[in-house]
């Protein structure tokens, strides 16, 4: 078990992680303070106003302004949190996907209990896919005729990213809803069949991380995971080339009979 994981949040390995953790820290500190204050006041009330001889209950009530103070305080804190922190970072993380050219494109497709991953290769374009070409050796159903697909690299349950380069994942699913979740990158997005969702992040730390499925997808949901490795650019290119030769050697036969 490498040192990425501690008793609290895992290591911060992407550009979004610090911003996310700051939010979690702020909220938990605020929750802790509010809870402690309330508990102290609560304990005081229990002791001070317990039933005992000579203690008569008095029906005078605090004015409304005093009683609404905690609500106003919580609302003010929340409005501040939403305006200053939540909406801007949400828009940065989820709203406008980066341009395809400026980032490393990856297509990730979840299926019941595997993650199929495809790199576009040198030409930067993905080959066209057809549902009817899908079989064990061709998880994406890449159309043989399409030249753009010739240099694509396909791997299963293995992702590799160069460090400090923006990654744009085109996320979809073949059968049921899965969820693309890398705890160290603080990235989570459901892979919904029929929809192609953009997910983007920039790995900032080299090391071994894990892609875990976070949405119940059937019997093998617990074992649906993939290894994520972040290395420097050179090692990434070398790995990509090695992977390319491997897929070429085992290229599927040209004519796939139709049944």
């Amino acid at each position: 078990m490498n040192g990425n994981y501690g008793w609290f949040l895992p290591v911060q390995a992407s550009d979004f992680a610090p911003a996310m953790d700051r939010g979690i820290h702020i909220i938990h500190w605020a929750m802790g303070v509010i809870f402690v204050l309330w508990s102290v006041f609560f304990a005081y009330l229990l002791v001070r106003y317990r039933a005992r001889d000579g203690h008569k209950p008095d029906r005078s009530h605090l004015p409304l302004s005093v009683s609404l103070a905690p609500d106003i305080a919580v609302l003010a804190f929340e409005v501040l949190l939403v305006v200053v922190y939540a909406v801007p970072s949400w828009n940065r993380m989820k709203r406008i996907p980066p341009s395809a050219e400026g980032s490393l494109q990856v297509e990730v497709r979840g299926e019941q209990f595997n993650w199929s991953v495809r790199y576009p290769g040198a030409d930067g374009k993905f080959g066209k896919t057809e549902p009817r070409f899908v079989d064990f050796t061709n998880p994406f159903g890449v159309d043989e005729a399409d030249p753009a697909g010739a240099d694509d690299v396909v791997t299963v349950n293995e992702l590799r990213f160069p460090v400090n380069e923006r990654v744009l994942v085109r996320l979809t699913s073949k059968d049921v809803i899965h969820s693309f979740f890398i705890p160290e990158f603080r990235v989570k997005q459901d892979a919904v069949p029929g929809l192609a969702m953009p997910v983007w992040f920039t790995p900032t730390l080299e090391g071994d991380f894990e892609l875990a499925c976070a949405q119940l997808c059937g019997v093998g949901h617990a074992i649906m995971r993939a290894d994520v490795k972040v290395t420097d650019r050179a090692a990434f290119d070398q790995w990509l080339a090695a992977k390319k030769n491997a897929t070429l050697a085992a290229a599927p036969k040209a004519a796939v009979e139709q049944w």
């Binding site: 911003a19 979690i24 909220i27 929750m31 909406v87 970072s89 993380m93 705890p183 603080r186 989570k188």
Partner: peptide
């Protein structure tokens, strides 16, 4: 109180499910 980080869109990315 623990509903707060879940209701906030940003922290829910990590804490959802």
């Amino acid at each position: 109180l623990t509903g707060l980080p879940l209701g906030l869109t940003v922290t829910d990315i990590y804490l959802h499910d």
